[in-house]
Design a protein around this nucleic acid. Structure first.
Lengths: 209, 209
DNA sequence: TAGATTGTTAATCGATTAACAATC
DNA sequence: TAGATTGTTAATCGATTAACAATC
């Protein structure tokens, strides 16, 4: 039933969700691909093609029902299921992500942080305990963990990812500046520094370098 | 001389830089596009095409000199220039980014954070002072600021971006979950939540949803 | 019914990959 | 010189855009 979904489409799904949520919050009940395209600065064609990967949720002559479409996309992404997340590496970024409210609202719950530093182990970030790395494997075995956020220093990232994979984790959101690719595992490599450098390139290009 | 550089190529430049730095650190002096492609899990063709946007830096029959190639790419990105950065919004993420060491190593210096919360204003993050938002415009006028990191709450993001743009900022690295697009300004919208959702989709797709 | 807008097929465009002459 | 590997042109592939019949 579903066609093959390209990486480009997958990346646009959360953005559709975000705009539909905003429109719903504004009280908009129906929208055409044309209007949505204007708001999102994309083409109506692209929107209809994208939705068509998952079947038609519109009505000819009417357009799309905002609330229903939003719910359908949430379901496609899998937001209805709820997820338990651990953060591996309780440094600056790890702690910041653990305290980020927006995730909670979409059904993501962070249950524990892990670190080796005795200054943070035993403490907590908000209500979330910081546990020693030695407990990581056992924790995963005894608790449901759907996703691991990886925020350890660069030199430990590959080993930590392997450990997580061996322990049965099937999704890693990696913030270390290395590319993680492992079998039987999906991984999103964020590469913050790469993003800053891409911005830097564009800044210089815009200044007629 | 330079061809039009596509978004896809721009996004790959920092990754080339990262791998070349690693190879240099390992003492590798020369490399062919074939070997580099194997290491980076891409094709030799793509590597040669990408470099060719900026002119040829290789030598037939030999390959590329790692150190020289790394320096050329650093120069293309603009890493040789050094950048002064401010962080607007001193919450979790803002403070974490202000304390992130990796930026410093590449010539990025964070000079100030800005916030409205009296609990943080007047304090500092590491050595970096947290100043009141009211001082933002004046600070930009009196100090060199090349890039602004935007980490304010969603509802204030658009207004803060406009303020920065009006004050003369030409590059924004935006972490708020809204799309910023302004005239005369380059912007990198990070969209952390979108990334987590893309990962979620893939996790479910992998589990034979 | 007539107008609007979808779902879907066809055309276009751009990016990736392959091929190969140039040359170190 | 012969082998290796680039720079660059040509072929392929996939994604985006346009077009239009179907239909609410």
């Amino acid at each position: 039933m579903e066609k093959r979904v390209s990486e480009a489409v997958i990346r646009r799904l959360p953005r559709y969700y975000r705009y539909l949520k905003m429109l719903q919050g504004m009280g908009v009940e129906r929208i055409s691909s044309k209007s949505l395209g204007e708001i999102m600065e994309t083409t109506a064609s692209q929107i209809r093609q994208d939705f068509n990967c998952f079947g038609g949720f519109g009505q000819q002559g009417y357009g799309y029902h905002v609330g229903e479409l939003k719910n359908r996309i949430a379901e496609i992404i899998g937001l209805n299921k709820g997820y338990q997340i651990i953060v591996v590496g309780a440094g600056n970024i790890g702690q910041a992500l653990a305290g980020y409210r927006a995730f909670l609202q979409e059904g993501y719950e962070i249950t524990a942080l892990f670190d080796n530093d005795p200054h943070v182990v035993g403490g907590s970030v908000g209500d979330i305990p910081v546990l020693p790395m030695d407990d990581l494997e056992r924790f995963i075995q005894r608790n449901r963990v759907d996703i691991a956020i990886l925020t350890v220093p660069e030199q430990h990232a590959k080993a930590a990812a392997q450990l997580l994979c061996d322990a049965g984790i099937r999704a890693i959101w990696n913030f270390a500046p290395v590319d993680i690719t492992l079998e039987n595992l999906v991984c999103e490599n964020v590469q913050l520094t790469d993003g800053l450098m891409a911005l830097t390139y564009k800044l210089n290009a815009a200044n007629g370098q």
